[in-house]
Simulated scan of single mutants.
Amino acid sequence: MTEPLSQTAGPALPVVAVTLGDPAGIGPELVARLLARADLLALANVVLVGDAWLWDEGQAIAGLQVPTQRVGSFAEVRGRSSTAMPAFLPMDTVRPEQVVRAQAGAAGGASVLAVLDSCMDATLAGHIDAITFAPLNKHAMKLGGLKHEDELHHFAQHLGVTGYFCEFNTLNGLWTSRISSHVPLKDVPKYLDQQRIIDAASLIYKSLQQSGNATPRVAVAGFNPHNGDGGTCGREEIDIIAPAVQKLAALGLPVQGPFPADTIFLKARAGELDAIVTMYHDQGQIAIKLMGFSQGVTVQGGLPIPITTPAHGTAFDIAGQGKANVDATANAFKIACRMGQARL
């Protein structure tokens, strides 16, 4: 269902683009559940971006009909007189016969790239303030033309980022970043240097402030078992991590650590920390996902625009079954709204 666009100026809300994710996964269903909630729509001027047939399919799987207001370009969205329903900017990126549900495919990956690139271009042009994308599939995206190890590096290149960037994973107010990400575990020591730790801690501190936390409590995890046990289990804590924390303090950032990786999340769970800088992907991801798999969010840190997504994947095992839990997508959208508002 679509409604005509009014040209009168709308309220001062951030314009947040929402995309449908991989067409073979649970993304379209999640977006239908997300945009059916009036409490969430009240947080932003939302523009849904994607293929019309895929949006119809997502609503059908979710058992919902969500009214939208069709627009012909991103430039039309900010001037809407009412944001009670989402705008819908249809794109033609993939045909139904090119998609096999629950299977990664090149056509689906290329579709995801085309939609996300159009949203990034619109943000750079000043038409939207933040992006939330439904789950994507890295294998499908690589089949569809992704030239990088992950979507974050694609975003960074597309947006012309030259400084430090990394993924943040968040859960119920706790944020994590990492010094190394999608690399083999054997290569992690190559990424351990003081400057990367300083950059990661500084970035997560500033990003938390941008999301509304004025005085974030940030700590750094150790790398070795038992924090190195005074050097008997490794010297990275002594030679690299602790000196980086000291330099952060000298810069005026109240960052703590290093703390043993096997206990630092107990401090977080007790409410003593707002953010943890980890040394590699699973050091933080295992803990976050155990603490709340269906709630977690990934924030693409270090980019000039806020981009968020649920931390879980495309869930091919339940795609098309109407079982997808929208909580993480809703949390991702809320963060995008807060960070987008800070840009206005």
Rank of each mutant, 00 (worst) to 15 (best):
S6Q: 06
G58L: 09
A38P: 07
G301F: 08
L40Q: 02
I128D: 04
F88V: 01
P216R: 02
H139V: 14
T123S: 15
L116R: 01
T176S: 09
S202M: 04
V255P: 07
S294W: 08
K142H: 11
G320D: 14
L273V: 04
A268G: 02
A104P: 11
H148T: 12
A140S: 15
A275S: 06
E97Y: 03
F316L: 08
Q103P: 00
P14D: 08
D199T: 05
E3C: 01
R101D: 12
R338V: 05
L344F: 09
L13E: 08
L174G: 04
A24H: 09
D187L: 14
T314N: 07
G173D: 05
G58C: 07
L89I: 12
S82H: 11
F259R: 00
I131Y: 09
E29K: 03
V183T: 11
R235F: 12
W53N: 04
T2Y: 14
G230V: 07
I305F: 14
T19F: 09
V100C: 05
I128S: 13
N331R: 10
V77D: 05
K289H: 09
G163C: 11
A32K: 03
M141T: 04
A249C: 06
F168K: 00
Q209P: 01
E3A: 06
P90Y: 13
A84F: 10
R78C: 05
A44H: 07
V112A: 14
P23E: 08
R95F: 07
Q65T: 15
R33C: 11
S82G: 05
V94N: 05
T68A: 15
A106H: 02
G21V: 02
T309D: 03
V161E: 09
A242K: 01
G222C: 05
E167L: 15
Y280P: 00
L54D: 01
E167T: 12
V18G: 06
D39V: 06
L30K: 02
G212E: 02
I307G: 05
R78L: 06
H153T: 10
P243T: 04
P254S: 11
L43M: 13
A332E: 09
L35T: 10
I61K: 00
G126V: 12
H312Q: 13
F259L: 12
A106D: 02
K142C: 05
V220T: 03
N224E: 07
P306A: 13
P184N: 09
G231W: 11
P4C: 06
S181N: 15
R178K: 15
Q157I: 12
T309L: 07
Q210M: 10
V100W: 04
I288M: 14
R95Q: 13
K323M: 13
G212W: 00
L143N: 10
L146I: 10
V245E: 00
L35G: 11
G320L: 08
G109R: 04
A114W: 06
R178E: 02
A221L: 04
A311S: 12
L113F: 13
G222K: 01
D92G: 06
D51I: 01
E57K: 03
L20G: 09
G63V: 10
Q103T: 13
V16D: 10
G21I: 02
